[in-house]
């Protein structure tokens, strides 16, 4: 469903993403993990069509995001890491606007908007301007907006930031159900528990390269760490370790 071949992204002399190859099947929940500045967000934004790759190809459901952006983006729902919304629109208006961007309107969409707002406990806020929403409420509104047009693929960058435990649990169940119904999710997160517990496969990205990819068992094999948890695997595969002298800092 998502296919990357030799994808690179350069900013001047700096190479943020270096030749990534990746295939994510229909119905799969794929987790992307990596240290800060590894190139995760750049990769996600290229897949969502916000950034243009310097080299390589990206296909969503067989459509190239560069050559046929409208057809590819019609299959996609993107959830960014920062929940920016139009502050002078109400929650209901924002969802209606998002649906219209995908060419959808009418009573079906009105029903869908009500369903999604109810799912995320936002119904009482439907007619309120989003400027009065909290960070978590905005995040939930954006997740709802990514689902409003019933996409085939969801690309989500750090979905749990700002969500309360109930909403986080709901989101996990939502993604699970969505993939069971044939939807595809590409998720980037630092929450190792989510990666470990939810994802079918995991990709570890480090210094712009996909250094490991597979199921938890595959990663354990690759790191030669049978029985290790995600935290240990991550540190081992990325070659990072805690070597700071905490005594010197804390005194």
């Amino acid at each position: 469903m998502i296919r990357l071949r030799g994808v690179t992204k350069r900013y001047g002399a700096f190479e943020a993403v270096r030749g990534i190859d990746l295939d994510i099947a229909k119905g799969e929940l794929f987790g992307l993990l990596g240290p800060n500045g590894a190139g995760k967000t750049t990769t996600m934004r290229m897949i969502a069509g916000i950034l243009t790759p310097t080299g390589g190809t990206i296909e969503i459901g067989g459509e190239s995001i560069v050559d046929h952006p409208i057809a590819a983006k019609a299959k996609l729902g993107f959830i960014p890491d920062r929940p920016y919304v139009y502050e002078k629109l109400t929650g209901g208006e924002f969802l209606r606007f998002t649906a219209a961007l995908y060419g959808q309107d009418g009573s079906t969409i009105e029903t869908r908007i009500d369903e999604l707002l109810a799912l995320f406990d936002l119904t009482p806020w439907k007619e309120e301007l989003t400027e009065s929403y909290s960070h978590g409420m905005r995040q939930k509104l954006i997740i709802a907006s990514a689902l409003v047009h019933r996409p085939e693929v969801i690309v989500v960058d750090e979905p749990m930031i700002g969500l309360d435990p109930k909403s986080a649990k709901l989101l996990k169940a939502l993604f699970r159900n969505y993939t069971e119904r044939g939807g595809t999710v590409l998720m980037s997160t630092h929450t190792l528990e989510i990666i470990e517990g939810m994802c079918d496969r995991i990709g570890i990205i480090h210094e712009g390269k996909l250094i490991a990819c597979g199921t938890m068992a595959d990663l354990r094999r690759e790191a030669a760490s049978e029985g290790a948890g995600m935290e240990e695997l991550f540190l081992r595969l990325t070659g990072e370790h805690l070597d700071h002298d905490l005594d010197a800092v804390l005194g």
Binding site: A48, I70, L76, F78, Y84, Y86, T98, L101, Y102, G103
Partner: peptide
Amino acid sequence: GRLLWLLRSSPLD
């Protein structure tokens, strides 16, 4: 500005 993520990731011409 800040909403370009939405406009660019949608099939808006």
